[in-house]
Every structure is written in structure tokens, then in C-alpha cells.
Design a protein around this nucleic acid. Structure first.
Lengths: 355, 355
DNA sequence: TAAAATCCCGTGAACGTTCACAGTTTAGTC
DNA sequence: GACTAAACTGTGAACGTTCACGGGATTTTA
């Protein structure tokens, strides 16, 4: 029970380090380091009396196990990597919320990695970071259309960590979770058709993104099913921002003058469309029908309230974590899952006053 | 240059671990581990020829230094903790964006910690995590009004990591970065007064938050300076959501019928106010003036375009990282900063059609 | 009552890196 | 050509934890 041991051999290196380590706890409680380890990990093979004594010392010294040392020893960091491309937009922010919630519930830490798809070697940097930091799993939340980078990433990271991709084209051997964007786009468009709109334009998102292209395909599906025309002049590409929705409507009217309805691929662009319509004196829903996608909370308060497609990205994030958790637990127990499961969430339509 | 060394002594522990370590690189290049370490850390004292040879082997084996081992050895994880309370709202999302951008620029990793202020021991959990994971610095981005928890946290974490608080009352010995919310509130309200509105109500944010209360004080400042009345009946409390803005206006009109203008403490609540006004047949800006706070990109596309207060939270996040970076570098070099600097960013008014 | 099982607890090595120090070679000086 | 300085390289320990194993004390079983 000696408080300070002056003959301690462990003072070679000059760390101005006042952290309490497992060794301090062991010395103070008069047991071995291993016993303390057993206590903090809730292992058996330690008597109730010593256990409670050690616990008392732990509380007294405010000891907290060093996660880094533990990671090194266990070869597992209890960390998940999240690869995305910024969280200003509604969708990614929702995803992150779900991921974070579920991760802390399971005791995982999160290592955020934002890629800038324009910088040439940013994917390499992110991959390196993830491997260096020994993440146990990765949630890839910024899926591009081609899947090229995703496949390359998959190859590199697979030996070290489990991966779940979000919202991309499923491919061999990978686990992909997504919302049925195509169905959502179709539902929105079919609803416009049903409401009697004749000439339905599309303000799509960046064409490099899978989800964006899927929504576009859904729009196309609906038009084809209804034997309506669909030409390139009915489409303009936006960048998810309200500004691009505003200018999008102008461009659309220019190249497709008979337009009487618009499906905007997200709510923020739909807001821009509403604004431009108002400025041009086109009444919504009278002269122009508008639907969005996302059902962000604000969309109910647009003027008029926006008809839009609801999908639960928060839940998608939670599912991703749960899936990784399952896969990793299976691996720990020695029977890794063979077929990585994929899954698609169903969106639904929320009808308001803009159609 | 032997590829596989069957007599390697390091095969006691059963790790199905195919990772390339510094030792493999050393063996393959025929140098010591220490030399490889010097190469990957760009230290001098290694000849150009061996350096390039080692680098060649590193590339060939695709070696990536183990960040965890490195952290353990150097006693520094190159990680910053970010404490917040969710990123669905515009403000926190902006903050995170700035933090993330600057952090990756400086090579820091981020450990996200979302607290649920309602759960009793969540702050303790977060604190423990941050200490366990050996973060070098912390950005506290969810400041409550009282500062109690912040002070307690400061006490606990100070021995281990630098801290920067965002948007709270400065206190002794701490570094606080914020936007001048009070000035912003004052500017918004003075603008309403200047436009001739007589009876200005307030839809405030949660009263537990410092920034929210500051905006309220700014509103008060302006009214007092203009010798206008201000009574509790002129105030309702919202929760930042559009829904609370909508019901907020209803409640406000009920308890303060002469109301002819509203300062909403954020743009989303202002949107709700606009919607409710529209529903009630009150013209904005004719019958009712409305200002918001945040200047989120969408606010220009509300109907009518929202007059609001702009502040650059992205920049605030970046500054926070820069400040931590500086403080930590000073500490590494042995001359820790004595006076932790604080700072206040100036917001400005953006006038649109709602006033 | 001896053998076997169970319960506790400790020892030494390992995880992959860096640090302090020491050693060996090469270059520079008078 | 001996002597010092500089440039380069290697050795062993340490960072804080967990794991595999071994062994003594206590209880159970035959």
C-alpha cells in the first residue's frame, strides 16, 4: 500500500505524465496488474473481496483504462470509420445522426473521414488513415455512380475491416444498404401524373451520384409506364442547393416551355423551384406541380407545403452500424458470415399542397 | 532479404494478422527497425541511399505505420475530441464542417462525442471516453447557459488535453470562441424598429442554451435603447424547429395581440412563423415583419425571402482547430501558452423581403 | 484421505512503435 | 597520420494493456 515507490524502475523516459495506469492501481491494491485487468474487464477468476477492493481503488484514483494501449494489445480499436463527403446537406447529416446514435449504444467510436472527390489522392489518404488507425469496420456513405472507387477501396480495406456501403449499386461480395431511390422517384412522378399534370420536368442531383441517378430512373420509369414523352430537354442537373433549383426551373422553362410540373430530386432544390415559380407568377399547384425528395422537417413549412418522398436515413445509418456490429461479432467468435446481407428501405410519399 | 523467416520468434500469440509492420520492412531492406522509423518520420541521420531503398520496400509492401502503436509510444493520439449534441441542425452541422476541414488540413483525427443532455451520466461517459482515448484537445461545441458542466469538464480534462469552448460565457483560464449573438439579436431587432414596426415579439430558442439567451438579450437591448416596451408576454420559447416557430406565432398573437413583428432566434423557426402568418392571412412584410438568425442558404428562398443575421460558424470551427493546434504545438515545444485567447466573431445583417 | 476439480492469482511475453543512448564509419583539420 | 567532429546506424527499453500459461490454495469427489 505504499503510495509512492521511489525505487520504481519505470522512470527512464521523461514523460511529464501524471496519468494513472493499471500499475498504480495494482500497487495500491496490493495485487498484480493482471488481476486489475480482470476486474476492469469483468472477467471471472477474481474473488468478490479483492474485486470490490480493486474497484474501490479505481474509483479513488479515478483510473481510466488507456484505450490506446488496449487497442494495441487486443488488435482492435473498437472504432468504425465513416467515409462521407460533408454533412451540410440534410441527407448525410441524418445518416450521421443515426450512425452516431447506434455506435455509442454499442460502444463503438467513430472516425470521421471526409473525402473531397475533386482532390486526386483524397481517397488514398482516407484509406491510409482508416488502415493506420485500425478501424474495425467502415461505413462508406458517399457512393458514386460508377462504383469504381468503391470497388478499389473494398479490395484494399477488406483484409483489415468489414465494410458496409450505403446507397450504391450492390456488387459481388459486398454489403449494401440503401433506400429505394428509384421507387421513390417513381412514386413522386406517378403522383404528379395522377394529379393530371402533363409535362413533367426533372431537376436532378449531381449525375455522378448513384442515388441521384436512381431517382432520375424512377422518374423515367413512371413516364414510360404512363406512355408520356421524356426527352433530355425535360432534365436539368442541379447540385442539391436551392439556388440550383431556382435557376433549374428557369432553364427548364426555357428548353421545355410546355412544362407544368417538376420533380426536384431533393427538397432544397424544390424550394428553389417554388421560389422561382412564385417570382414568375406561376401558381403552385395550379400552374405548376412540384414534388421534392427527402421530407426534411422544413418542407412542411414551405409555401405551399411541399409534396415529397419520405425516407428514413437516420434508420439507415443505424442499420449500417447494426450490420457491422453483427458481422464483427461473428468474426470475433470465429464464424465469419459468408454472405454479406444487403437491404433496401422503402420510401413513401407525403402529399401536401404543392401538387 | 529472406521473405519468410520460419524461425521467427514472434509467433507465440495467435493473431491471424497479415499486417505489414515496421519489422517486416526492416528485414526486407536489411536495416534496423529504428532506421525505418527514421525514414517514415522524415528524420535526418539516414543516408539518401538507404532512405530511398527503405522507401522502395515500403511502397512494395504497402506498409502503413500503425497509428495506435505510434500513439502509445508518443503519448499523443493526434486526435481532437468534439463534444456536441447532434448535427441535424444547421448551426452544429456548419461547425462540424469547419472543424473537420481544418482538422484534416493539420492532420488531426476527430473523435465525435454526442451528449444527450437529458441522460444523467452522459457527460461523464463522454469525459471518460475522451480521456481513455487520449485526445490531445477538445472542442466543446454544445455550451449550456449555466456553464456548470463546462467548468466541471474543464477541471477533469485539463490535466490531459487542451480545450476550446465554443459560444459560451468566457470564464477564468479557458479559451472561448464565439459569435456575438447578442449583437446579432440587437441588429435584427433594431432593423425591425427602423422599419417602423412597433410591437416586436420574440420566438427564442431553448432557454438552457447560452447562444439562445444572448440573442434574447440583444433583442432586449434594442427595445430598451429605443424605449419600447418589453414584457414576458412578448416572448415565447421554441426548440429551433419550424414547428415551434409556427405554434410560436400563434401563441404570441394570443398573449400579445398588438404584435406586428417577430424576431425568431433561428431561420427554421422564422420559416414556421412565415407559414403561420400566411395561413392567418397576415401579409409579410406588410402586416408582420419577420427576421431570423443564421442565414442558412435556404433562407433566401423562403417566401418572402428572409431578413436574417449572418454568422460564419464554419469559420468559427476552423478557428477553434487552429487555436488548439497552436496551443498544442506550443506545449510540445515546451513553452505552453499562459493566457488562452478568446475571440468573438461579428455577425451581420442580411436584409431581404420579410421586413 | 488422496485425487481431482475448481477457484484465485501472478509471471513473462507480446502488440508496433519511438526514444535515449551508444557504437561505427566517414569526413575534416592541423 | 593522428584527432576531433559529423554523419549514419543499431540496441534495448519503454508506452499500458491483454493473453497464454503455470501454480498454489481451497473445495469437491470417490
Amino acid at each position: 500500500m505504499s503510495d509512492v515507490n521511489p525505487s520504481s524502475p519505470r522512470t527512464d523516459r521523461a514523460h511529464s505524465n501524471n496519468r494513472v495506469t493499471i500499475r498504480h492501481v495494482a500497487e495500491q491494491s496490493g495485487v498484480s496488474v493482471q488481476t486489475v485487468s480482470r476486474v476492469i474487464n469483468n472477467h471471472p477468476d477474481v474473488s468478490d473481496s479483492t474485486r470490490s477492493q480493486v474497484q474501490h481503488i479505481i474509483g479513488k484514483l479515478q483510473y481510466r483504462p488507456n484505450g490506446i494501449a488496449r487497442s494495441l494489445s487486443t488488435q482492435s480499436s473498437r472504432t468504425l470509420g465513416v467515409v462521407a463527403s460533408g454533412f451540410q446537406l440534410y441527407g448525410p447529416a441524418q445518416l450521421l445522426t443515426g450512425i452516431e446514435r447506434e455506435a455509442t449504444a454499442f460502444g463503438w467510436h467513430l472516425l470521421l473521414q471526409i473525402v473531397d472527390p475533386n482532390k486526386p489522392n483524397d481517397y488514398e489518404r482516407v484509406t491510409s488513415n482508416l488502415i493506420s488507425q485500425h478501424v474495425d469496420g467502415v461505413i462508406w456513405a458517399y457512393p458514386e455512380l460508377t462504383g469504381e472507387r468503391e470497388r478499389a477501396f473494398h479490395q484494399q480495406i477488406m483484409p483489415f475491416a468489414q465494410i458496409v456501403f450505403l446507397s450504391m449499386e450492390p456488387f459481388q461480395g459486398s454489403s449494401v444498404l440503401s433506400v429505394d431511390n428509384r421507387l421513390g422517384g417513381r412514386m413522386a412522378t406517378e403522383h404528379l401524373i395522377q394529379r393530371g399534370y402533363q409535362n413533367i420536368g426533372l431537376v436532378t442531383g449531381p449525375k455522378t451520384l448513384w442515388s441521384s441517378e436512381q431517382r432520375k430512373l424512377g422518374w423515367q420509369d413512371a413516364l414510360i409506364a404512363a406512355k408520356r414523352m421524356h426527352a433530355p430537354s425535360q432534365i436539368v442537373e442541379g447540385d442539391w442547393s436551392s439556388t440550383s433549383g431556382d435557376t433549374g426551373l428557369l432553364r427548364l422553362l426555357n428548353q421545355f416551355p410546355t412544362l407544368d410540373a417538376v420533380f426536384a430530386s431533393n427538397d432544397q432544390m424544390a424550394l428553389g423551384v417554388l421560389k422561382a415559380a412564385h417570382r414568375l407568377g406561376r401558381r403552385v399547384p395550379g400552374d405548376l406541380g412540384v414534388t421534392g425528395f427527402d421530407n426534411m422537417p422544413e418542407s412542411a413549412y414551405f409555401s405551399p407545403g411541399l409534396t415529397t418522398v419520405h425516407h428514413d436515413l437516420c434508420q439507415l445509418g443505424q442499420l449500417a452500424v447494426r450490420e457491422l456490429n453483427q458481422a464483427l461479432q461473428a468474426k470475433r467468435e470465429g464464424n465469419p458470415l459468408l454472405a454479406p446481407p444487403s437491404l433496401m428501405l422503402q420510401p413513401w410519399l407525403v402529399v401536401r399542397d404543392s401538387t
